[in-house]
Design a protein around this nucleic acid. Sequence first.
DNA 1: CCGAAATGTAATCGATGATTACATAATGGA
DNA 2: TCCATTATGTAATCATCGATTACATTTCGG
Lengths: 222, 222
Amino acid sequence: MPARQTSKPRISKPRARRQTPETRPYHHGDLRRVLIDAALQLAAEGAEVSVREAARRAAVSPGAPFRHFPNRDALMAAVAEEAQRRFRVEIEAALAEASSIDPLARFRAFGIAYVRWAMHNPAHFEIISTGRYFAYGSSAELIRDNAELVALSERMLAEAASQGLLRSPDLKRTLIAGRALIYGFARMNLDGHFPRWGVEEGEIERMAEGVIDLFIAGIAKG
Amino acid sequence: MPARQTSKPRISKPRARRQTPETRPYHHGDLRRVLIDAALQLAAEGAEVSVREAARRAAVSPGAPFRHFPNRDALMAAVAEEAQRRFRVEIEAALAEASSIDPLARFRAFGIAYVRWAMHNPAHFEIISTGRYFAYGSSAELIRDNAELVALSERMLAEAASQGLLRSPDLKRTLIAGRALIYGFARMNLDGHFPRWGVEEGEIERMAEGVIDLFIAGIAKG
DNA sequence: CCGAAATGTAATCGATGATTACATAATGGA
DNA sequence: TCCATTATGTAATCATCGATTACATTTCGG
């Protein structure tokens, strides 16, 4: 039988507590948090996110993560939560900065911020948008965060409609069209379609603005 | 030459015969083809496409596929080629059936056929659109097929422009916008976004038409 | 202070992509 | 026709991965 490995002299270091009243980690300090960060970084590096690699970066055994996440999908869901939170913060900051009264101008700022974030954080955007890496319904926070962004879009267009700015009376249709346009543009970039469509790398951001403007001009009355 | 059918003593191989009706020869007839079909079917079933499972379905050893594909990505690229071919055939058939002179009506038919195919073949659509499963540049046929569809879209809009049907003089921008809208809609469905946006399953196809109509009305002059 | 709960480790499992050495079939030149 | 070469499939093996289990250790509450 292999001799039991003597355990490392663990220095008990009281780490900073999270404010959230969740499961409080004991041994590692805050392994759950560290694992999420490691996974986020892996995603940001474009590497494949594996539980083992996250554990490796946290300097912990391969089985340890499963004390905090029932399976890989749960880890990915937590990663998505964090990415979604950052996404929402960024979008709301951009809207706050825009500070326009015109709802269509706000919609424009929203769309541009959306595409820009997706361009700068491709791996995170991928994780939060496809639902390929985890069961979407597994995270209430993710659902809530997303619903708020949906509601935000709805409000902008509803306001535009109430001011008589829109051509179509079908608000839902207009909303879905705008969303499809923005999401589609972001994904075309992420999925590497633009080279096939003759759109150069440095041209993409400008093209995003142009395309959103064209859409708004199309739905605006007059 | 008449293929010599050899009797097979097959002493050293008590291997279990698979359910193939004829006694399976040592050499598979067209393993490459069969592997692609098996992988296509796996994708269609929504299962994860693994080389081993494809080999299993072809009743062949796990290493055999690597005689035909240098690695998994190459298999996936071949699968994407086949899926893309079917996709193109379907789109062109839909356009032929539309047989409208109006370029914008043709664009509409194109978009609807696009979304419909993506809805009915989610796994295939995923494979050909993301480039996550293989290196896109690895297949000349894939590039060519795709370029033809791009050119097809361009022609439709260029024709519309030449007939003075478009509001914007920026053809490229209009093209990208239309593509982003259609691709985005198809992906929203594939990525499971519609429930969050209050679009019911049975409503999606109608919504696709509505959204495309709205877009066309937005870019059309008058 | 002590026992229970929390959390980490070691060992192990089955599946996968991939590589290597070897076995067998198919092909074509002498 | 013979047989050597090439194409193609098999067997064995490896490293990695997600996941589970038994066990060790740390922390916390009564």
